[in-house]
Structure formats: structure tokens, C-alpha cells
Computed example of a mutant assay.
Amino acid sequence: MLEAKTNLEKLFVVLDESAELLKEELDVTYLEALAEAGENFFQGEVVQDLTSSTKKQLEQRLQQVDVESLHKEEVRKALQLAVLKGMKEATQPNHALTPDTVAVFISYLVNKVTSKMKDVTIGDPAVGTGNLLTAVMNGLPKKSKSYGLEADETLLHLAFVSANLQQQEIELYHQDSIRPLSLAPVDVMISDLPIGYYPNDDIAANYELKAKEGRSFVHHLMIEKSLELTKENGYLIFLIPNFLFESDQAPALNAYLKEKSIILGLLQLPQTMFKNAQSGKSILILQKKGPDAIQPRQALLAEMPSFSRQDALADMLKQIDRWFKEELNLS
């Protein structure tokens, strides 16, 4: 066993070893086994029907870490490391994790837009493993409730285990968020938007942002659904591809956003975070129109410096803080 020094490393090692044992015994993928391992740590016992030797090895690992005594962020990051390992063997293109620095930065932005709210409700229409949503919730100093939707059963199981281990109150739905659903609107909608085409043309036909011809973009439909599920004056913070406003369907998206929301900001993430220019991303910040929505004199438009350049990043955060205070009266 590796010599683990920090709580985060200790938890990662026992989760990883437990997942490998379960993967072998149950003949499942690493990610499925990781969800099962997480379930054991939450229940405090081995819940699967296994051979006595595997069960004994898993029970030994359960005794090595007291998850309840750990900080929520230690638990989230340990799970994130294990999920990243599992993603490398997964072949599905949508199995990708929001980079940790980006998740924490989105948490900072959510703190900004909710600074005057007493408690906060948050939604994520493509919650995945719950990494972004729990990072945001862990960063909030006030009470928050949230929900997440996810069509992939393995990712949803991981999100469920992750929320339980971090003791966060999240309602999770095994559902494609483009289909009809009735959920209470939230104060803030966040998402690392999945990119691609939506396969069901009949359901897409009910959306204003459906394609005039051929398949509709799932990311456009998800933006429309998210606005529908956000309270008046509420906020939406999305991780989007840099090419979002360059496609042949972009004019319709632009017109729709101007009609339903105020575009508060667009922050381009450093290119060094991505393999190539085509995979570059930005953070889009919107406010849904309502009686108290504020139209800033100028939108927050910036190219973020590398997150490893501490001085440049600190300077950028000062500028962003000033913008929120001067333009939106938010501290």
C-alpha cells in the first residue's frame, strides 16, 4: 500500500483499492465499482454479496479512514481523483470531469451572485458525478439545497454516493433534462454543458432553440431548459465551448438570450488548460430577466490568466470583485 500522508491521499488510496477489488469480483467497470465502494464507506459496512476473502479485505479498508471526520472538500477531491482514473478507461465522450480549478472558480462566482441571498437553491441539468455541484455547495457559507439531473446511471450513482459522503443535501433525478419535467425554479443554475446533438427530434420540437433543419444542439436546448427552471432575477453560470456563438444556429441562441436574460459576463479560460484551441472553454454568466434584474453598464469580459500564475490571478480577481460591486452592487 502507498504511504499516504494527507487525509485526501488516505481516502483516495482506500477508495481506489476497494474499487479495484470490487471491479475484479463483480466484473464491472472501475467507475461502477467506485460507486459501490463509496456506498460501503457511507453505510459503514460492505453491502455487496461477495466472497469472504474479498469482503474481509474491504472491511479492513473501511477501518482505515473515518470519512465523517474529514472535511467535505477532502472527500470531494479524493473521489475526484478516483473518478479521473476511471474516466481514462471509459470510452463515452460525455464522461469528462470539470477541472478542479474551474469548479472552485465557479464556486467563487456563485458566492458573488448569491451574496445578498439568505439561503440558496441550485440546479444542475447535467450533474454527472456531482463534482461541480458539490464544489459549489462546499464553497457556500450559507445553507443551500440543490438538485441535479443525469441520464447516465453510473454517473448518477457516483453523484449520489459523493453527496452522501460529503453530507450535502442534493435531490438527484435519473433523467434527461431536455424531456418534460416539473421542478421548482432555483436561484442559481450551473452546468458544465454537454456538447453535441440531441437525439430525440420530437422532444426538441417543443423548444424555441430547436434546429430549423436536422438535429438540434443539446447545449442550446439545455440553456433554454435552464432558463425555464431559474427564478426571475436568478443567475445562470455555464461552462461553455468557445465556439458556442460561432455555429450556424448561434444567431437564434443570441436572440433568445437577449430576450430572456441579461448577459452579465463571459470569461475565457486559459488555453493552457486544454489540449487544443478547439477544446477551449469559457464561463458564461447570465441573469434571468425580472423586475430586480440589473443591466450592467458594461459586461464582464476577460481572458483569465493561467490559474498557476498566482499574482496575475489575484489581480484578475480584484478586477472581478470591483466589477460585481460597481456594476451589480454585490460584494
Rank of each mutant, 00 (worst) to 15 (best):
A204H: 10
T121H: 08
Q319S: 10
Y197W: 15
A82C: 11
A151L: 06
L149F: 14
M189I: 13
Q63I: 05
S226I: 03
M222R: 09
R179N: 05
K212I: 11
P194A: 04
E169F: 11
L227H: 09
K318E: 13
A252K: 15
F324C: 00
E228R: 08
E73A: 09
I203D: 07
L229Q: 12
R61M: 02
I106Y: 03
L284V: 03
L221A: 02
D187P: 02
E39N: 15
H95I: 02
D124A: 08
L253K: 06
K210F: 10
P194R: 11
P125A: 03
E9H: 10
T230H: 11
Q271W: 12
A293W: 12
V46D: 01
Y198G: 01
Y30F: 13
S182R: 14
G280F: 06
S18D: 03
N233P: 11
P99S: 04
D192N: 15
E73V: 11
A96N: 09
E89C: 02
Y108V: 04
D16K: 06
G196K: 11
E171L: 06
N242S: 10
S177F: 11
W323L: 01
G86I: 02
L21G: 01
E171R: 11
T134G: 01
S308C: 01
G148T: 08
S182N: 13
